[in-house]
Simulated assay, not measured.
Amino acid sequence: MNTLYQLAERFVEVAFWYCCDFMVNLANLTHSSYDEANTWVLLLGLPGVLALLLGVRVGQWFQLRQLRRR
Rank of each mutant, 00 (worst) to 15 (best):
A51D: 14
N28D: 13
L46G: 00
Q60M: 14
Y5T: 12
E13Y: 01
L7N: 06
Y34R: 05
C20E: 10
E13N: 10
T3G: 15
L50Q: 11
A8Y: 03
V14F: 02
S33V: 00
L44Q: 04
E36Q: 08
V41R: 04
A27H: 05
L52C: 01
N2G: 05
F22A: 09
G59S: 00
Q63T: 11
F16S: 08
V14N: 09
A8Q: 05
F11W: 08
V58G: 01
M23N: 03
D35P: 01
D35L: 02
V12A: 14
R10A: 12
N25F: 07
F22Q: 12
L43W: 08
R10G: 03
E13Q: 02
V12R: 05
D21V: 12
T39F: 10
L50G: 00
S33D: 09
R65K: 14
R65V: 03
G55I: 02
T3R: 12
E9S: 12
S33W: 12
C19K: 12
F16E: 13
L4D: 03
Y34M: 01
A37V: 02
V56D: 10
E9R: 14
M23V: 11
Y18S: 10
L64R: 11
Y18C: 05
L7V: 10
Q63K: 04
V58T: 15
T3A: 14
M23F: 08
C19H: 13
T39S: 04
A37W: 04
V41I: 13
G55F: 13
A51M: 11
Y34E: 04
T39D: 01
T3H: 12
R10K: 14
L64P: 02
Q63N: 13
V14I: 14
R57M: 07
F62G: 06
G48N: 08
L43H: 13
M23K: 07
G55S: 07
Q60T: 01
W40F: 11
M1T: 15
V24Q: 02
F22L: 05
E13V: 09
L7D: 03
V41H: 00
T39W: 06
A15E: 07
Q60W: 15
L29S: 09
L42S: 02
R57L: 07
F11S: 02
